[in-house]
């Protein structure tokens, strides 16, 4: 099986630790993962901000770069949802529907790849901390990941998973929404942070670093003492712990 990692531009540039964690984790499970270096960005930021043509160009680029792989693993709910939900529509117009129909069904969120393709929930991780999980909107309502991330976390040795109240509520990131509507975005994040603190968790986990950057930036500004970690980083952690913190 030829497996490619689509790191996403945000992870590539700002959160390389997540990418390294995916590589470590997949190797540990016996998967040889490839990183096609021609990849850049899925086009989500452009499309969602109203720069459709650029979004279409980047979508075409994505399907070119990842053609021929048996699976493409994406450690980001919103980029995964961009590919799966929006590419078919964009491709119809851009005239690359066949390429999209070929490649898009092979694109998996990390947790889908682990559970649905590899068939594992216990990935041999060790992380002795109290963790709460925020199911980001695109993981939840875009990719329909359901309880996959929770099932993976529950199998992690030493990890105590505590439920997050009003978990399905948006954190208020929304890409450029956070900058265009800063007051509403901050109000939404304020409520999210209050719910996180109520759990008493040491670590907030999610499957999307964009939302974690937003929530984590607020937590750190408030000196709340809760750190944020991508799901991949927790799943890559083994004894002795080497989970990267941000």
């Amino acid at each position: 099986m030829r497996v490619a990692l689509f790191i996403t531009c945000v992870n590539d540039t700002l959160f390389p630790g997540t990418g390294k964690a995916v590589v470590t984790l997949l190797r540990r499970l016996g998967v040889d993962v490839d990183f096609p270096e021609a990849q850049t960005c899925c086009g989500q930021m452009h499309l969602n901000t109203g720069y459709r043509d650029e979004g279409v160009r980047l979508a075409r680029r994505f399907v070119d770069v990842f053609a021929g792989y048996d699976a493409v693993v994406v450690p980001s709910g919103s980029c995964g949802a961009m590919v799966r939900e929006h590419y078919p529509r964009l491709a119809e117009e851009g005239g690359f529907a066949a390429a999209v129909a070929e490649t898009v069904p092979k694109v998996y969120d990390l947790s889908e790849f682990l559970i649905d393709v590899l068939g594992v929930t216990d990935v041999g991780a060790h992380f002795p901390h109290k963790v709460t999980y925020h199911p980001t909107c695109h993981s939840l309502r875009g990719l329909h990941l359901g309880d996959r991330p929770a099932r993976l976390l529950q199998e992690v040795k030493g990890l105590e998973l505590v439920p997050l109240p009003a978990a399905e509520q948006c954190c208020g990131f929304g890409g450029t929404f956070a900058v265009k509507n800063p007051d509403i975005s901050a109000a939404m994040c304020g409520d999210k942070v209050r719910n996180i603190l109520d759990t008493g968790a040491e670590v907030l986990c999610a499957a999307d670093n964009s939302c974690l950057m937003h929530i984590g930036g607020t937590l750190s500004r408030q000196k709340a003492g809760v750190r944020v970690m991508h799901l991949a980083e927790i799943l890559a952690s083994t004894e002795p712990e080497h989970g990267e913190s941000r």
């Binding site: 590539d12 959160f15 990418g19 265009k180 800063p182 901050a186 937003h214 750190s220 500004r221």
Partner: peptide
């Protein structure tokens, strides 16, 4: 306009090395 971000949030630290350079 980016000030809307830093009014309530810290900016993430830029890492020394990107993922692709590490790879």
């Amino acid at each position: 306009p980016l000030g809307g971000w830093t009014d309530t949030r810290d900016v993430p630290a830029i890492p020394k090395e990107s993922f692709r350079d590490w790879w």
